[in-house]
Simulated assay, not measured.
Amino acid sequence: MMMNLFSIFDPSTSMNFSLNWISSILMILYIPMIYWFIPSRWNMLLLKLMNVLMNEFLILLSKNNNKINVLLMLGLFLMIFLNNFLGMFSYIFVSSSHLVMSLTFSLVLWISFMLFGWLMNSNYMFSHLVPQGTPVILMPFMVIVESLSNIIRSGTLSVRLSANMIAGHLLMTLISSTGPSLSLLFLILVLLSQSLLIILELSVSLIQAYVFSVLSTLYSSEVN
C-alpha cells in the first residue's frame, strides 16, 4: 500500500531510467510567444501577473539598482509555478515535490546571499546577528539563535515547497483509490471533493511559488 501510494513521486520509469525529469522542460510550452503582432489573452495575463510581482519585489528590495535581482526572482517564480501547475495533469511527474529540485534552488540562492553578505557587508552581517535593543547578557544566546536561523533557511524554503506539493497529491490519491468500492452516492461525493481539491491544489501551486520567491527576495534584501 505504501509503496503504491508513494510510487507517484518515483522519478524512475519501468526501464530504471529517470526520463520523468524531462517534464520540467514542458513548462516552456506554456510560456506564450511574445512576438505576436496582437498579444493573446494568455500573454496579457502573464504580463499583468509579472508586472504585479515586479512592483512588489521592487518594494521589498527598496533599491533601484536591484532590477537584476527582480528579474531573477520573476524567473524563479515562473519556473516553480509552471512546474507545480504541470504536476496537476495526469501521468506528469511532479518535479517540484522532490528535494533534489527545491533544495538545489534554495541552496544556490542561500549560499550566494551569504557569500555576498559576508564578503561585501561584513559589518552589517555581524550587527544583524544581534537585534537592536538586546540585553548584554542575552547577546551570546541571540548570536547562536540568529546563526541557526540563517543556516536552516535553505532547508525550510525547500521543505515547505516539497511538503505542500506532496501533501495535496497524496490526499487526492488516497481519496481516488477508494472510488471503485463505493456506491453511486458516495462516488458523486468523492468526485465533488476531488474537484474542490483540484481547485485548492491549483491555488497552492501559485501560493507556494509566490512564497518561495518572496522569501528569497526578503533574504536578498537583508544582505544588501
Rank of each mutant, 00 (worst) to 15 (best):
V211L: 13
F17V: 14
Q208K: 08
L58P: 08
L47W: 04
F113C: 05
L196E: 07
I22Q: 07
S147W: 14
P32M: 01
H169W: 07
V204F: 02
M73I: 10
N64P: 11
I28D: 12
L47P: 01
L5V: 05
S40T: 15
L49F: 01
L71A: 10
H128W: 08
M44K: 15
M50V: 13
F9S: 06
L45Y: 03
W42K: 14
T178L: 13
V130Q: 02
H128G: 07
E146S: 15
H169N: 12
E201Y: 12
I92M: 05
I80A: 06
N69I: 09
L115I: 13
N51A: 11
M101F: 14
L174W: 11
I92V: 13
E222Q: 08
T173K: 10
S122M: 10
S221K: 13
S176H: 04
L115D: 10
V143S: 05
L49E: 13
M27N: 06
N65H: 08
L19R: 10
A167S: 13
V211K: 03
G168W: 03
M15G: 04
S195D: 09
V52Q: 15
N150C: 06
I199T: 02
L26G: 00
N121K: 00
S149V: 15
S154T: 13
L182K: 03
M120L: 02
M172N: 11
K48N: 01
P39N: 00
Y30T: 07
I59P: 01
L109C: 09
T134N: 01
M44S: 09
L107I: 10
L129R: 06
L119R: 05
D10I: 03
M73F: 09
H169A: 08
I38M: 11
E56I: 12
S12K: 07
E222R: 04
F9V: 03
N64K: 14
V130E: 00
F105E: 04
L202R: 03
L138G: 02
L148C: 15
S221M: 03
L119V: 00
N121G: 00
L119Q: 00
S90I: 11
I59N: 13
Y210G: 03
F77T: 09
S7E: 14
V145N: 06
H169I: 10
N84A: 12
L161W: 09
M101A: 03
I68V: 04
L189D: 11
L103Y: 04
S95K: 05
V190K: 05
T104M: 06
L189C: 11
I22D: 10
V52C: 04
F85C: 09
W110T: 12
S176Q: 14
R160W: 07
M33P: 08
V204G: 02
R41F: 12
S205M: 12
F113V: 05
M142R: 11
V100F: 08
S12Q: 11
M33N: 09
M79W: 14
G168H: 03
N123I: 02
